Simulated assay, not measured.
Amino acid sequence: MRNLYLTLFILCLTLSTQAQKLSKLEEVLQSKQKWSVIDVKCSRPYFEIGETFTIRIDRKFYHDRNNYAKLGGEWTLDGKKLILTYDSFTEERRRIPYVYKIKKWGKDGFRLTYRNKYNKKEKVYLK
């Protein structure tokens, strides 16, 4: 009986530590507080070089634009897709999700790819 309790305790402890572990991608996103846009490959850029993203542990993010506008919202990961849900700050208080695929990521930075409203593939490099 004692062995059964010990086994159950170890099993519960193992399961709780696995649930708290972050994926490697989440660790990279949260390893640095501010990420800067260093390169943009697209015809009509939504992002500009020098803009910063602050990604917080509590799943909030802030996007500082070069025109002094500050946007924010919540971020989630779905596999290798980063979903940024912007708060619209209008009367309707809409929440606008943008889905980006994360490509070539590491501790130095990562690349986001997405499709613009004209269905053209665009790339943004953050470091």
Score class of each variant (00 low, 15 high):
Tyr5Cys: 15
Lys117Gln: 13
Phe61Ser: 05
Gly109Asp: 05
Leu11Gly: 10
Lys70Leu: 11
Lys107Ser: 09
Tyr86Val: 08
Tyr118Leu: 10
Asn119Tyr: 06
Ser43Cys: 11
Val99Lys: 12
Ala69His: 06
Tyr125Gln: 05
Trp35Gln: 01
Thr76Phe: 01
Asn66Met: 03
Cys42Met: 13
Val37Lys: 00
Trp105Arg: 02
Gln33Met: 11
Tyr100Lys: 08
Leu6Tyr: 02
Lys24Ile: 08
Glu92Lys: 10
Arg2Pro: 09
Arg93Val: 15
Leu71Gln: 03
Arg2Thr: 15
Gln18Cys: 10
Arg93Asn: 15
Phe61Leu: 02
Thr17Arg: 12
Asp39Tyr: 03
Ser43Leu: 12
Leu84Gln: 01
Val40His: 00
Lys41Ser: 12
Ser31Cys: 08
Gln30Cys: 11
Leu25Pro: 00
Asp87Gln: 12
Leu77Arg: 00
Arg56Asp: 14
Tyr62Asp: 01
Gln33Phe: 08
Asp64Tyr: 11
Asp108Leu: 03
Lys104Val: 12
Phe89His: 11
Asp78Thr: 13
Lys120Thr: 08
Asn67Ser: 09
Pro97Val: 12
Lys107Cys: 05
Arg44Cys: 04
Asp87Glu: 12
Asn119Ala: 09
Phe89Lys: 13
Phe53Val: 02
Tyr100Ala: 02
Glu92Val: 14
Asp64Ala: 15
Arg94Met: 12
Asp58Leu: 06
Leu25Thr: 06
Arg95Gly: 13
Glu122Arg: 04
Leu6Gln: 12
Pro45His: 07
Leu112Ser: 02
Ala19Trp: 04
Thr85Lys: 05
Arg56Gly: 14
Arg44Ala: 12
Thr113Ser: 08
Lys123Ser: 11
